[in-house]
Amino acid sequence: MRRWLVHRGLQAAITLVLVAVLLFFLMRLAPGDPLGQLGADRQLTPAQIEATRKLYQLDQPLPRQFANWAWALLHGNLGTSFTHGRPVTALIAERMPATLLLGGTVLLINFTIGLWLGTVQAVRRGTLADRSLTALSLTGYAMPSFWLGLMLAWLGAVHWHLFPAAGFENPLLPTDAPWRTRAADVLAHLVLPATTLVVVSIAGTMRYQRRAMLEVLPLPYIVVARAKGLPEAVVRRRHAWRNALFPVLTLVGLWLPILATGAVFVESVFAWPGLGSLAAEAIGHRDYPLLMGTALLVSSLIILGGLLTDVAYAMLDPRVRWA
C-alpha cells in the first residue's frame, strides 16, 4: 500500500510540474498583452508602455522569465500581481475562506440532500415522487446559474428584502461586533449564492446516486440480506447505500477544483469575493503572476482530487489496490 501511494504521489508531482511548464508557456504565447490595453484605453505612448514593461521585467526573453518564475516558485513565491501590486500567495489566501465557505456549503448540501434524494428516487423508482424529483432537479440543472442568481437576488434581496443582495459581509457592521452577529451576517450573505449553486448542481449528484442504487439493489447479496430477514431500512442503508457510494466518490474528486474556482458566474452576480472572480479578473487583465497562481491551484486540486479518489477507492475496495 505504501509503495503504491509513493508511486501515485510521484506521478501526481510529475504531472503538476509538466502542467506548470505548459501553463507558463501557453499563457505567455496566447494572444493578448497585460500592458496592451493601457495603450488602448489610457492614452499611454508606446515609449511609456515599454518603460512599464521594463518595470515588470516583461521585456526579458521568455526562457529568462520562466527561470525567474520557477526559481521563485521553488522558494514558495508566486510573484506579485500586476493589478494588485501584492504577493499572489497573499491574494489567494485572502480569497480562500470565501471560496471554501461557498464551495464547502454547496458540497455539503449536495452530498447530503443530493445523496438522500437520489436514494429515495431509486427506492421509489417509477413513482410520482421519482418522476417529480427528476423533473425538478433537471429543471434546476438546465437553468443558467447567472440567470437563476439574478432572479433569486431580485426576489430575495430587492423585492422582499430578506437576504443581502451581494457581498460576503455587511461593511457597516462594526469591526468589534460579537462573533455570533458576524457569523450570522456571513451566513445571511451565503444563502442566495449557495442556493443558486445547489439548485443548478444537485441534479448531478442525485442522478449518480439514483443510478448507482439501481445497479446495486438487484444484486445477489441484497437478495441474500433480505432473505436473512433484515429490515428493509437496514438492507438499504448498510448493504445497498454503502456500496452505491463508490461511483459518487468520483464525483467528489471532480468537485474539488469546482470548489475552488468553478462558481465564477455566481460569484460575479453576488459579488462573492472568491477565487473564481479573482481568476476571471486575472484572465481579463492578463495578470500573468495571478493567472499562474490561480491556474496552478486549480491544477493541483484536479490532480489532488484524482489522487484522493484513487486512494479512497483503494482503501474501500481491495481489488483496486491489487490491480
Binding site: 439574478l150 443582495a165 451581494a166 457581498g167 459579488a271
Partner: peptide, 15 residues
C-alpha cells in the same frame, strides 16, 4: 461588485 447587476441590486436593496 464587478457585475453591473450586482451593483444595481445593492443600490435597489438599500445596501
Amino acid at each position: 461588485a464587478a457585475d453591473v447587476d450586482a451593483r444595481i441590486n445593492l443600490l435597489l436593496s438599500g445596501e
